[in-house]
């Protein structure tokens, strides 16, 4: 009996905490499909999704390249302070996104250390560059975190074997190292993308939230909710698209896990 009560407790918990809110939202979306669709197809919403996707794509590319280099430095590098680097990479996980956004505003603001750009007409704050910077910041740890343990696990013998067989450092990286860590990289990319699409706090502070210009999908949901005036259909509709994206990402993660590590 104990076995069953534990199962019910676990399932009940999942239902209440995870499934309940999402199911309710799907339900409400379905109640006014026309209203939801009108909001989703609104040019400003389309623009918000485009911005979110573009920003996320940049963050994924930048953090994948950085994550692999950083992982190699942490595991293989012969540099002082790599333990420090290893710990520091996790900062975005523990730091509130709002604080990240605020810190960026301080740095790039008119009298910040990097305020030169803003003062000379290269708009960073309240424009796309700041949204990109904020998203890169909050998604920085994911590829590194996936790559580091895998690099430790594969060791250096395969790379040494490649060298004795004549492969240059570059050839060794492309033919041996990268294929060996590919699942970790793909997994990190998926996590980075999910986090990038969902980012709200930091972007809310730096973007200026101008509809059709610097408003990302999450900001648009918040807007639709704040200024609903009794008509919540637009908020439900846009939120539904975001939730559906998250589910797709989750499924992708399940299918992307390499066979040998799938439980």
């Amino acid at each position: 009996m104990g076995k069953y009560s534990l199962r019910f407790a676990a399932l009940g918990y999942l239902l209440l905490i995870l499934i309940g809110p999402l199911a309710m939202m799907v339900w409400r979306t379905a109640e006014d499909l026309d209203g939801a669709w009108a909001a989703i197809s609104d040019p400003d919403t389309v623009s918000a999704f485009k911005l979110t996707l573009m920003v996320t794509a940049i963050a994924v590319v930048v953090n994948t390249v950085f994550g692999i280099i950083c992982g190699l430095l942490i595991v293989r590098g012969n540099i002082p302070g790599r333990g420090f680097l290893n710990a520091f990479v996790d900062l975005p996980l523990s730091l509130s996104p709002v604080v990240v956004g605020f810190a960026l505003v301080t740095l790039y603001g008119l009298d910040g250390w990097l305020g030169w750009f803003q003062r000379n007409g290269y708009e960073i704050l309240f424009a796309t560059p700041s949204i990109v910077l904020a998203t890169i910041f909050v998604t920085l740890p994911f590829v590194v975190r996936e790559v580091v343990p895998t690099l430790r696990e594969i060791g250096t013998e395969q790379e040494q074997a490649a060298q004795t067989l004549g492969a240059s450092g570059w050839q060794t990286f492309w033919r041996i190292t990268l294929p060996s860590i590919r699942w970790a990289v793909i997994y990190g990319v998926v996590l980075t993308a999910a986090r990038g699409i969902g980012e709200f706090g930091a972007v809310a502070v730096v973007s200026g939230n101008f509809a059709g210009q610097t408003q990302t999908a999450t900001l648009r949901v918040e807007d639709a909710y704040q200024f609903a005036y009794g008509n919540y259909a637009p908020a439900y509709g846009i939120a539904f698209v975001l939730a559906a994206t998250a589910v797709i990402v989750l499924l992708a993660m399940i299918f992307l896990q390499p066979k040998e590590s799938r439980a």
Partner: peptide, 20 residues
Amino acid sequence: RPPQERGVGFVFQHYAAFKH
């Protein structure tokens, strides 16, 4: 000289097989 230029064949205790 780096290992690439020495013309050595090396066999490792734990095989160092290219797993992929």
